[in-house]
Every structure is written in structure tokens, then in C-alpha cells.
Design a protein around this nucleic acid. Structure first.
Length: 437
DNA sequence: TATCCACAGGAAATCAGGGTGT
DNA sequence: ACACCCTGATTTCCTGTGGATA
């Protein structure tokens, strides 16, 4: 150590003290969180009205019909339902309705849905996370509903209901069971509200379920346009930030950027929040345009980082194989799935304690990477040379390397040159492919 | 024009790991 | 200890396919 004081260079106590005294931008940061339900929901009047009409009979103690809400992410579906539920609760004197929210992305299996409903109503963990037969839980649930909910209405809100059907593990069965809960209940009445981003998910729905859930016309939530997003952001910003923190035009900028995408209000709010975070972190008392641009960049990167680090090791290795296949001077211009698997298999041999999966499984992982926008892999027929996916990285290689080097088992092989690249077999094949494309 | 490559991707079976009540 | 339940990940088995080549 050159300077004997070097080890005391960073004075963390002083730093925190200064930070507390420094400028503050957030008055209430929570107002920009997705879970925040504002007092007013701009530009959702039609939808609120329709849902209010459908659910109004709950005021008289009658069970409202089941119905569906469609709309892309960030169009306010969940927020609108929560908003209406609060109002309905406020206007009900006795027998207040129960609202049970189920995010089918999280609570994704028939067993867990039943258990979730039961445990929410009972207020404690009465149903073990696994072990019991479904029909036993179903009967227990019926008993609990009659006993605890009694003469009230129980709304079951199934958020992202499409997830239940797509990996069809009994998704239709549980929905069918839920739609006919009422037939088996003596006192309590239930009503289903399904929320979905996929319009065409009805096609895979069991006709018996559809007849109940699709009795009423679905409520469609259209994406917000830029001015509408601006109104939403303005309301939230007033709660979230101190006066004068926002530079002129910031809201319009965030709204514009989000509207360019798909009118996702959640994204717009995230953007504003992140911009605030960045300004705060830089100890600035004004949020400027560059903070917003930086935030946008960060959010995209955060999403990719989170996704890759959250993948199972096998999928990370698949991505590593693609990376290694494209980083060297002798890398082919055209990467096909067969080569990816070959390199992947080689990597499995190098890293201790890793089981080699089948081609079939890796094929699925390649599809997942495509869905996440990390690679693209269109299918191309090479005629006599077969039919395969042409794989290309869609994110920056240096950035990808940074991410992969955060993974313990992978960080040491990022400079490894696959055997495949050492022969000129690939080069020859590649020349043929280049001609065909 | 029949052939045949190199896979794609659906469906069902299997496995392992978390549990249950008796 | 035993028989059985639920779930998620993976394997096994399989049929399908676009188009350059023989």
C-alpha cells in the first residue's frame, strides 16, 4: 500500500450523513409502484362503468355473473378491478363481499389455487403446500366457504388466467371446478373474474368453462396513448415527487417513450421511478431528460440481466454455447441449432457435476431465449442440408459476457474455444449455408 | 420429381422431490 | 412403514417438413 491512509479512504459514515442532508426527490416513492391503487383512474371510465354494472347486484346479495377482462400488460386491468372492489366494499352495508386475488403466474397449479383460496379465507395456513388429493381440498373449501363467507359473495379474481391453459396441466379442469362451485354451496355464492393479456386464449378454453365465463361480453382494455399516459403520470408524479423536482417536459417524454412501445402504463411508471432513482443517486435535486434516457437504457438491461441470471444452469449453458460460437475469429456467420447442441454438450463435459440434457430439451431452451428477445432463431430450410434454426445473438456480446461472468460455474469458460471451431468442418458447411441464404 | 437431410416440436411417460393420512 | 398425492423437469417416442440435390 503506497498510502498508509488508503484503507480509510472511503468514509462511509460521512457519506451517509451527507446523503441524508443532500437533495431529495421522492416524497412518496410508492406511488410509482405497480401495486399502488390511486384514488382516481384516468381514462378507464367506460371499463369502470361496465364492471360496476356487472357487479352491482352484489349490493343486493345476488351473485354477479362471471366475466373476462382482456388487454395487454399495463392497460390497467388489475388496477380497475381493485378500484371497483374498493368502491363496492364501501357501498355494501352488511355481508361485505370477499375478494380473492390469484395471480396464475405465481399460483399456477390446480392444487395450489384451491389451497390459496382456502388459506386466504381461513386466514392461516390450514392446507399444506402439497400432499393431499385435490378432491379432499375441494370438499374442505366448500365447507369453509359456507361457514366463513356465509351469505356473502366471494369474488375469485384470476389474474393472467391464460397461463393456466397454455401448459394445459389440468388448467381447464380447475376452471371448470371453480365455475360450478355455486352448485355445491348452500349459502355462499361465488363469482369468477378472469384477467388475460391474450385475446385468443378463449380458443383453448374448455367449452363448458367458456359457457359460464363467456356469458357476458368480455371487457376489453385498449392500450393507453401518449396523452393518456401523460395524465396518469401527472397524477402519480404529484404524489411521488416534491414540487419542482421534474424538469419541464419530463412527463411528456416518459409518456411518449412508453407509448412508442405498447402503451404500457406500468412501463411508463417504471421509467419515471427509475429516472427519479438515478437523479437521487447522483444527488441531484432535479430530474432531467438525460436521467430518463439513462433510465430507459437501464431498464432494458436490468430486464435482460434478471432474466439470464434467473434461468436454470442448463439454459445458461445453452446461451454460453451460442456466445462461444459467435465470439471467435473463426466463428461461422451462420449458427445452427445442431452446432449449439454440440458445443453445449462439450461444455457439460468440462464443468464438473453437470448432467447433459437431450437435444429436445435444449431446443426448448433455445425457444425460451428467443421469446425473451435475447437471441433470434428463425427456422430456415436448407433443402438437402435439412431444416434448422438460424441462431443469432440479439444483445451485445460484451454485455452478455459481463452477465455470464457473474455465474460461478460459467465464468471460467468464457474464453474456451470449442473443439467444433478448431476443425474446418464448420467453415465448409458455413460456405454452403451462406450460398443458400 | 422423388429423395432425403437435420432438425422442429407434440404427446405421453418417467423421475425425483416435496408431501399426506393411516 | 406404506400406499398414495401433486408438481416440475426431463426423456422417450414420434410424426412432420421445405427445398436443394441426385
Amino acid at each position: 500500500m503506497k498510502n498508509p491512509n488508503e484503507k480509510y479512504n472511503f468514509n462511509i459514515d460521512q457519506f451517509y450523513k451527507d446523503y441524508k442532508k443532500g437533495p431529495k426527490v421522492f416524497k412518496n416513492r410508492d406511488a410509482l409502484e405497480p401495486s399502488f391503487v390511486p384514488d382516481e383512474l384516468p381514462h378507464r371510465n367506460k371499463e369502470i362503468q361496465k364492471i360496476a354494472e356487472l357487479t352491482a347486484c352484489a349490493l343486493m346479495g345476488d351473485a354477479p355473473p362471471s366475466f373476462l377482462c382482456y388487454g395487454m400488460t399495463g392497460t390497467g386491468k388489475t388496477a380497475t378491478i381493485r378500484y371497483v372492489s374498493q368502491k363496492l366494499e364501501y357501498h355494501t352495508k352488511e355481508h361485505k363481499p370477499w375478494w380473492i386475488y390469484i395471480n396464475c403466474n405465481v399460483v399456477s397449479t390446480p392444487y395450489r389455487i384451491l389451497a390459496h383460496i382456502y388459506n386466504t379465507i381461513s386466514g392461516s395456513e390450514k392446507i399444506p403446500p402439497t400432499g393431499l388429493p385435490k378432491d379432499v381440498i375441494f370438499k374442505k373449501l366448500l365447507g369453509l366457504l359456507d361457514q366463513k363467507v356465509g351469505n356473502s359473495i366471494c369474488f375469485l379474481v384470476l389474474d393472467e388466467i391464460d397461463r393456466l391453459i397454455e401448459n394445459k396441466k389440468g388448467g381447464n379442469e380447475i376452471l371448470y371446478d371453480l365455475t360450478r362451485l355455486n352448485e355445491n354451496l348452500d349459502y355462499c355464492r361465488t363469482s369468477l373474474i378472469g384477467i388475460s393479456n391474450k385475446l385468443k386464449f378463449r380458443e383453448n378454453l374448455d367449452p363448458r368453462v367458456l359457457s359460464s365465463l363467456g356469458e357476458e361480453p368480455p371487457i376489453v382494455f385498449n392500450p393507453y396513448n401518449a396523452p393518456q399516459l401523460g395524465d396518469i403520470l401527472k397524477d402519480r408524479a404529484e404524489i411521488a415527487f416534491y414540487d419542482g423536482v421534474l424538469e419541464e417536459g419530463i412527463i411528456r417524454l416518459c409518456a411518449g417513450l412508453a407509448a412508442e412501445g405498447d402503451g404500457d402504463a406500468r412501463k411508463a411508471l417504471q421509467l419515471l421511478r427509475k429516472a427519479g432513482d438515478l437523479a437521487q443517486r447522483a444527488q441531484k435535486d432535479v430530474i432531467k431528460r438525460e436521467h430518463v434516457y439513462e433510465a430507459q437504457d437501464d431498464l432494458e438491461k436490468d430486464h435482460v440481466i434478471e432474466f439470464i441470471l434467473g434461468m436454470p444452469l442448463q439454459a445458461q449453458l445453452t446461451l454460453t454455447a451460442i456466445y462461444l460460437l459467435s465470439k471467435f475469429p473463426e466463428s461461422p456467420e451462420i449458427i445452427i441449432s445442431g452446432d449449439v447442441y454440440e458445443v453445449y454438450a462439450e461444455l457439460c463435459g468440462i464443468i464438473p457435476g453437470v448432467r447433459k440434457l437431450t437435444e429436445r430439451r435444449i431446443s426448448d431452451y433455445i425457444n425460451e431465449l428467443t421469446l425473451a428477445g435475447i437471441i433470434s432463431a428463425p427456422i430456415k430450410s436448407m433443402g438437402y442440408h435439412g431444416r434448422t434454426k438460424i441462431i443469432r445473438l440479439d444483445i451485445d456480446k460484451v454485455f452478455l459476457k459481463d452477465i455470464l461472468s457473474k455465474i460461478d460455474k460459467i465464468k471460467n469458460i468464457l474464453n474456451y474455444k470449442p473443439i467444433l471451431l478448431q476443425s474446418n468442418k464448420v467453415k465448409l458447411k458455413n460456405n454452403v449455408f451462406k450460398r443458400l441464404i
